[in-house]
């Protein structure tokens, strides 16, 4: 028999005991380093009501139990392109089948594959407890390496994404040292909205693995807004735009390389949007 649990009961367990939450297990088990698993965890997969993606009111609601594969296989509005691209870059099919998007956020790795794409979607995080529900911006949810604002009695129940962004265009790129099963050297996500004259009316840009928490590059976003999405953007990304990133040297790459690669990738993504806009215009 499948284990089925009511959300209310789950929140009560969290209130009563200092219980760790298990989602897909793809971060929990490796972090054990072969140690014995805890004898008691709260298993998010046993909460059926958290396992769906739905449009609720003005927001797309991704439940805490939704796996990357579920997202990949679900028809979604255009703006989810970047998140879907990120989903395909998560580990492997095996990991995508088990791991949840919410689990990726709660694990709060600097190289979390889901964060840049969700940052450009202005994602908000719904935290529930016996005391009620609060919602925080993703940019405030993750506070540092392996650290979030989640309190011990709280459960992340959903990611909320404004449906107002639905027809925006998004892209995502992950750079690593091999093809599959790779922790990124750097990741970039870009969202833009253009009007009928191909003028950029909204832009969001986020970079992962270049700071303790993935960051939006607001200066670059501001520079883009109001510009025409065409070849004039060819050299718009400068080193200064990356000044709030703080990459480190590690086994995957040097800090200096991360900045250089970020600049190249972001410029290419912007050029890609410009090419598409031009192609659309000539079509």
């Amino acid at each position: 028999m499948k284990n089925v649990l009511e959300l209310e009961a789950a929140l009560q367990f969290l209130a009563d005991d200092d219980v760790q939450v298990l989602s897909g297990g793809t971060d929990y088990y490796p972090a054990l380093n072969d140690a014995t698993p805890a004898s008691f965890l709260l298993n998010v997969q046993s909460l059926p009501e958290l396992r769906s993606i739905e449009l609720v009111g003005d927001d797309w609601r991704i439940g805490a139990g939704v796996t990357w594969s579920q997202l990949i296989n679900m028809p979604m509005p255009e703006c989810f392109n970047a998140l879907k691209l990120a989903a395909r870059e998560v580990g492997s099919v095996q990991i995508q089948n088990s791991a949840t998007i919410v689990g990726n956020l709660c694990n709060a790795s600097p190289a979390a594959d889901g964060v840049p794409a969700l940052l450009v979607l202005n994602a908000r995080i719904e935290l529930s407890s016996v005391n009620g529900v609060r919602v925080v911006d993703l940019s405030e949810f993750i506070t540092g390496v392996r650290s979030t604002v989640l309190r011990s009695h709280e459960l992340v129940t959903a990611i909320l994404i404004p449906n107002a962004l639905a027809s925006d265009k998004t892209e995502f790129v992950k750079l690593g040292s091999r093809t599959y099963l790779v922790i990124s050297i750097v990741m970039c996500a870009v969202r833009i909205r253009v009007d009928d004259a191909y003028r950029i009316t909204d832009a969001a840009i986020a970079v992962g693995a270049c700071s303790p928490v993935a960051k939006r590059l607001t200066e670059l976003e501001q520079l883009l807004v109001g510009r025409t999405c065409d070849a004039s953007l060819a050299n718009c990304v400068s080193a200064e735009h990356l000044s709030n990133l703080s990459p480190i040297d590690d086994v995957r790459a040097t800090a200096e390389y991360r900045l250089q690669a970020t600049r190249v990738l972001l410029q290419r993504m912007i050029n890609g949007f410009a090419d598409h806009a031009t192609t659309d215009a000539s079509a």
Binding site: K2, N3, G25, T26, L41, N43, S69, N97, S98
Partner: peptide, 16 residues
């Protein structure tokens, strides 16, 4: 669904 059994809690396969 293809998963890594080493990352799967046995509880998660109850009823499957």
């Amino acid at each position: 669904k293809n998963v890594c059994a080493c990352l799967t809690a046995v509880e998660q396969v109850g009823g499957t």
